[in-house]
Write a protein that binds this DNA or RNA. Structure first.
Length: 222
DNA sequence: AAGAATAGCAACCGCCTTGCA
DNA sequence: GTGCAAGGCGGTTGCTATTCT
């Protein structure tokens, strides 16, 4: 049974946080009719929401394959690499991180990465910050990944896609411990790299360590 | 213990692109 | 070729939880 709003009151659009009931309605409707045609979907499902709002709610939150929780070091590494290549192309970056949404990656970048840039008193797009990423942050992430995965070259020397089906090794040589850092076969997302089961780090602990490295780096610049 | 400051994240806004009549 | 509607994307805002003073 489809609900077609008749009166103006029924047409009045809701905004703000979604309720559990609205979520349920949206999920049920999509389960029955599939996604797409969001504007009419919103009307027919009886949701007083814009099509855009429904689409966003589904893609960023309700979709069954959405992964939640801490961004793992592998994912962080991938984000840093892909962002250096593609810039703020969040949806494109998200395509290479299964289960992560563009919104989540964007939020990660703004809250974590830009915060570090701010602490360094430089712009995220500056050469200085690029150097920090390339020579400190990324190598540290690689070390962490190596350590936690039993020094698996597949993880530590993983390749980063230029597109999701065109892998290249994007980890800078300075960040690679051995002469042969390769071993992963193609796009991380496709080989399931981020699903290898490397445990999450306690973000605050390892980020603290990042800051001691920052001090070293700043010293080197003096 | 309470208020202020900060961080994290969900959701909205506005612009651009695409598809179709 | 043009206009319109819908979808997609990046930027921004605002709310809530947490941390700090």
């Amino acid at each position: 049974m489809e609900f077609i709003p008749q009166s103006e009151e029924e047409m009045e659009l809701r905004r703000g946080a979604w309720t559990a009931d609205e979520d349920l309605v949206l999920m049920n409707y999509i389960a029955l009719h599939g996604e797409g045609r969001w504007s009419s979907l919103a009307r027919r499902a009886g949701l007083r929401r814009t099509g855009k709002s429904c689409r966003l709610r589904w893609l960023n939150y309700l979709r069954p394959d959405v992964r939640r929780g801490n961004i793992t070091p592998e994912e962080q590494l991938l984000i840093l690499q892909l962002h250096s290549r593609w810039g703020n192309r969040w949806s494109k970056i998200a395509q290479c991180l299964p289960g992560r949404t563009d919104n989540e990656i964007k939020n990660y970048w703004r809250t974590r990465v830009q915060k570090h840039a701010k602490h360094l008193h430089c712009d995220v797009h500056s050469k200085q910050f690029e150097d920090v990423l390339r020579h400190l942050w990324i190598p540290r992430l690689v070390e962490r990944i190596q350590a936690s995965s039993g020094d698996s070259p597949a993880a530590a020397g993983a390749e980063v896609p230029t597109s999701c089906d065109e892998p290249v090794n994007a980890i800078p040589e300075s960040a690679q411990g051995g002469e042969d850092g390769s071993g992963a076969n193609g796009c991380w997302s496709e080989c399931g790299y981020s699903e290898l089961g490397v445990p999450d780090f306690d973000q605050s602990i390892w980020e603290d360590e990042m800051w001691s490295m920052e001090d070293i780096w700043l010293q080197q610049q003096l």
